[in-house]
Design a protein around this nucleic acid. Sequence first.
DNA 1: ACAAGTGTTCTTGTATGCAAGAATATTGAC
DNA 2: GTCAATATTCTTGCATACAAGAACACTTGT
Lengths: 223, 223
Amino acid sequence: MSERTAVRLRDTIEQEIATGELPPGTRLDETVLAERFGVSRTPIREALLELAASGLVEHRPRRGAVVAQASPGRLFEMFEVMAELEGMCGRLATRRISDWQRKALSDACKACAKAAAGGDTDAYYYQNERFHYAIYSACGNSFLTEEAQRLHRRLKPYRRLQLRVHNRMLTSLAEHEAIVEAILAGDAEAAETLLKAHIVVQGERFSDLVANLSKLEEVAEAR
Amino acid sequence: MSERTAVRLRDTIEQEIATGELPPGTRLDETVLAERFGVSRTPIREALLELAASGLVEHRPRRGAVVAQASPGRLFEMFEVMAELEGMCGRLATRRISDWQRKALSDACKACAKAAAGGDTDAYYYQNERFHYAIYSACGNSFLTEEAQRLHRRLKPYRRLQLRVHNRMLTSLAEHEAIVEAILAGDAEAAETLLKAHIVVQGERFSDLVANLSKLEEVAEAR
DNA sequence: ACAAGTGTTCTTGTATGCAAGAATATTGAC
DNA sequence: GTCAATATTCTTGCATACAAGAACACTTGT
């Protein structure tokens, strides 16, 4: 492995934030992390600064870093932007998708169906991510793909909660299938609208998310 | 000033990239910068890493940092996303703008008109920025505001070139006025469409930008 | 007992030192 | 003279050292 240590550390910490091992609000002590990973503070600091720049951690001057903690309002704002970007991806993908990307999209959707049929929430979570990345990739705008992925990663700590809600997996799957249909049929407007609706947390769904959010905070405080 | 040195350095370097003092492709030697600013390499490194995370500089492992250099295709992609975000800001702002924000928007537009009337390209450049920031701020979604500003800053090194094109300032102003009218009239759809069209570089305008881009690269190579 | 002020400790922020990889120059063969 | 292999130099990446600000505990006065 020729990769920079700091980069590996950044990815590791990011992963732990995404999976919830480091829930929002957790203090990230440089010294503690350095000992834990068996390195000096320098690469840890670099990793934390990069994570802060990407928005996953908050870096308060002279007061250390904590895993970023989004308020319900903030979360709503982030999902609102995510919806717009995903809608844009879908709209563009409809026009620009290549043949092998069509196949990748269908396959990802089928994999979601399989996971849903088996009632496997964790598998669905993973396949769902694959499905959305397939759309990001098909938009024909690599910068947009990167930005969508960036925001997706930033929302990951919260997204996992959504699927735990009762029956969410099945409605999510139905929406996926409608989206694929629209894209493959060449209906850009429908693809955009459906994707936006798929992301946007509104009404009850947003309440569910917020409810789970407070659970997450309890976990953070317990540490 | 109690601000971290690294943060001040980051802002300074970012500014110099935006103004073109450090054109795309310029090598950013840590030691050289450290001597220039009279600090050690540590805060310089942190500043460069943060700029790399924000996309303004490219950081190649063990090979140092350079000011990010966007190809014409990449630039088109970035502007395509910028157009979408600005359109979204306009659409939301139409519904959510407050009274004092209406005034701020009108004032910014009038300031643009004044600068254009005086033929002052530099003043227009500045007031144009103020105008767009007024729209970002009025969208009622602080996360979207931040993201729009972030992308705006990232495009700054290239944006300056656009206005130099003959007559661009006057057409730009006319577009601004139409946008303000749409927002104040409450026509969200028009605001979105007009803003998208205002940003998107298409046809001749994109060619003009690319032509100036190559000039920029000559400057970088001469160093 | 409580509040305010002060001193201690702990963490961050910056400087410096050192090692390893990349770029460059040098030397030798053809 | 050119190309290639090797040696040298230079830059980055990480470790360590030190300084300064923040958190915390303790003391002291009321």
